[in-house]
Amino acid sequence: MNLFRLAGDMTHLFSIIVLLLKIHATKSCSGISLKTQELYVIVFLTRYLDLFTRFVSLYNTVMKIVFIGTSFAIVWYMRYHKVVKQTYNKDEDTFKHYFLLLPCFVLALLLHNEFTTMDVLWTFSLYLEAVAILPQLVLLQQSRNIDNLTGNYVFFLGAYRGLYVLNWIYRYFLQDHRARWIPWISGLVQTALYADFFYYYILSWKKHEKLKLPA
C-alpha cells in the first residue's frame, strides 16, 4: 500500500459518500445516471469475486464490502425508494449502456493475463469501469444545471482513478518494475474520459460559476 493508492481509495469512497449524501439528504437523484450506477454494481461484483476466497487484508475486505454494499444501495434508492425514484428522469439517461457490456466482455476474452473465469471477469471489470462513467457524462451534458453535489461526485470519481495511475507509476519505478498493461491502459482511458469534465469543473470553480458542460 502506498500513499497514492490510499488517497485513491479514500477519494473513491468519498465520491460514493457524496452521492449517497445527495440522494439521502435531498431525497432526489436528479442529474444522476442510473445506468452508470448499474454498471458500477457489475464492475464491483466481477472485480471482487475473490472476496470470500482470497484474504489480502482486513482493509481490502472491508473496502470491497463497502463498495459492493453502497453501489447496491444507490441502485436500490434510484429504482425502488418511493420518493427518490420519482426524481429519476429516464428520458435524460439515454446512453445505451448495455452496448458496453459485450465489447468489454469480448475484449476480456481476447486480452487477459490468464484464461480463467476469475481473471477474465476481473479483466472485464477493468474494461467496464473505464467506460462506466459515459452514461453519467452524457447526462451531464444534456442537463441544464448540474448541482454542486453531483459535480463533486463526478470529480472525485474521476480523481480516484487518476491517483491510481500515480500509484501504478510508484509501484513500477520504486517497487517491482513489472509492467501491468491491462490495468494501466484501462485506468488511463478511464481518467482521459474525464479530461473535459475536469477542465470545465475547475474552470467553473475558479470563476465561481455554475458548472455547465458544452453539449
Binding site: H112, N113, W122, R180
Partner: peptide
C-alpha cells in the same frame, strides 16, 4: 505472478 499481485488493489 503478474495478474495475482495486482489483485491486492481495489
Amino acid at each position: 505472478d503478474n495478474a495475482k499481485d495486482l489483485k491486492d488493489e481495489l
